[in-house]
Every structure is written in C-alpha cells, then in structure tokens.
C-alpha cells in the first residue's frame, strides 16, 4: 500500500537522513502565523499543509512574498478556509522566502527494472520540458554524486550566474547522498519516491524548500 506523506512529514522524514530544509513552522491560526513570520523576518511564504493536497499552486494554496503582519493574517485566514475535507489539512506552513534565480530538483524514483534511483535535475516550472536530468542507482558514492552534477547539460546554471556565486557542489552532493541513504534505508516503510522541489540556489547554496515523499509498507 502506497502512501503520500504530507509536506511537513515528508520534510521530517528526509531530515532524518540529513536533508537540511529551509526553516518553517506549522501553525493552526492567523495569529500564530504572524508570530512565526516575525520570528523569521519578512517577507515570508505561507502554504496549506495536509496529506492529500496535490496541485497546490493551481489551487492557489501557496502565498508568496507576504510582507507584513496584515498580509500574513489575511493570507493564512484564506488558506484555512479554502481547505476541503479531502485535503486533510493540518494547518499552514509559514517559511521565510528563499530567493534565488536558479531552481533544481532532486529526488528518489523507483525504476521497475533497476529499483531505487537518485535523481538530480534542473527544476522550476519548465523542468519537464527542459528535461535536464541525471540519474544513478542508489546507493551512490560521493563521486557518483559529483558526476551527476557534472552530467547536467545546463552547466551555466551550476557556474556563477547572474551575480550569484557558483553552486556549492559539496552542499549539493550532501543532499544527493542523503537521498541515497533514504532510498536504501532498511528500517521503516520504503521510500518509493521523493521530490525535493524546489531546491532553490540561494547565494550559491542549494536550499531544499519543499518535499513530497511516497512510502510503501515493507512486506
């Protein structure tokens, strides 16, 4: 039986394997959202969190660049009232806005013939169209991870880019190795797929912002 975890559970699971996500806080009402936002500093992002929420962007369940307590309170109120029973919403995630011109995607996929794989690609809304992706069988070594980065066609995105320094390869390798650990873990339910999307390059540092994990119980 396959199960898709909520965003916060997805992040929590991957964090146990060493993926360091951008900070965020799960809140249940607009006032706590403001407290969280003030803690991070503005601007912040807010998004509805729940196990069954897909197509968040399309449904307007992600609000970006909220710049004041007033904006946060309004947005969080709207998100909570937009939740449908099927979403199984657990609250709203408030996070500082992570900004960067470059987005990558990293993840785990289970190939029907080759089993668990680790993937790195150019992210963003055009990820599928750009299709600049490298894949390796899990587990991967540090060298495999370095070569996955090298294999991407869009090396211009990895080098210094629009005033930002080059991507911190060691940090990116750490993300891929953590995913490899998650894909090959022998405890708990098997991670059959995982997305770290987006993986925003912020000042050269890859910052995992969001995650979605799909698990299957071991038999």
């Amino acid at each position: 039986m396959r199960r898709t975890l909520s965003e916060s559970d997805s992040q929590a699971l991957l964090a146990t394997y060493g993926v360091r996500f951008a900070p965020e806080e799960l809140v249940g009402d607009p006032d706590s959202a403001v407290v969280a936002a003030e803690g991070f500093g503005y601007p912040v992002a807010a998004k509805l969190c729940g196990e069954n929420i897909a197509h968040k962007t399309e449904r307007g369940l992600v609000r970006l660049s909220l710049r004041s307590a007033h904006e946060v309170r309004a947005a969080v109120g709207e998100l909570l009232s937009a939740a449908l029973p099927d979403d199984r919403a657990t609250g709203v995630l408030v996070a500082p806005m992570i900004r960067g011109d470059r987005e990558l995607i990293a993840g785990i996929a289970t190939d029907p013939q080759f089993g668990p794989t680790v993937m790195l690609g150019v992210g963003g809304v055009m990820a599928e169209a750009v299709a600049d992706v490298s894949v390796r069988l899990a587990p991967i070594t540090q060298l495999d991870a370095a070569e996955m980065i090298e294999e991407l066609r869009s090396q211009a995105l990895i080098a210094a880019f629009r005033g930002e320094p080059p991507v911190d390869r060691d940090a990116l390798i750490e993300v891929l190795l953590s995913l490899s650990d998650a894909a090959t873990a022998t405890e708990g339910a098997t991670v059959v797929s995982a997305d770290i999307n987006p993986l925003i390059i912020c000042g050269g540092v890859p910052v995992p912002v969001d995650a979605l994990v799909e698990q299957q119980e071991r038999r």
Partner: peptide
C-alpha cells in the same frame, strides 16, 4: 506523486 518519477525515465536511468 512528484516530478521525479516522470523525469527519471527508464532511458535516463539506463544512461545513469
């Protein structure tokens, strides 16, 4: 559930 599944095609996996 996510994008990785659609990006990690079997051809790219074989390349890897």
């Amino acid at each position: 559930a996510g994008h990785t599944g659609s990006l990690a095609t079997d051809d790219r996996t074989f390349t890897g």
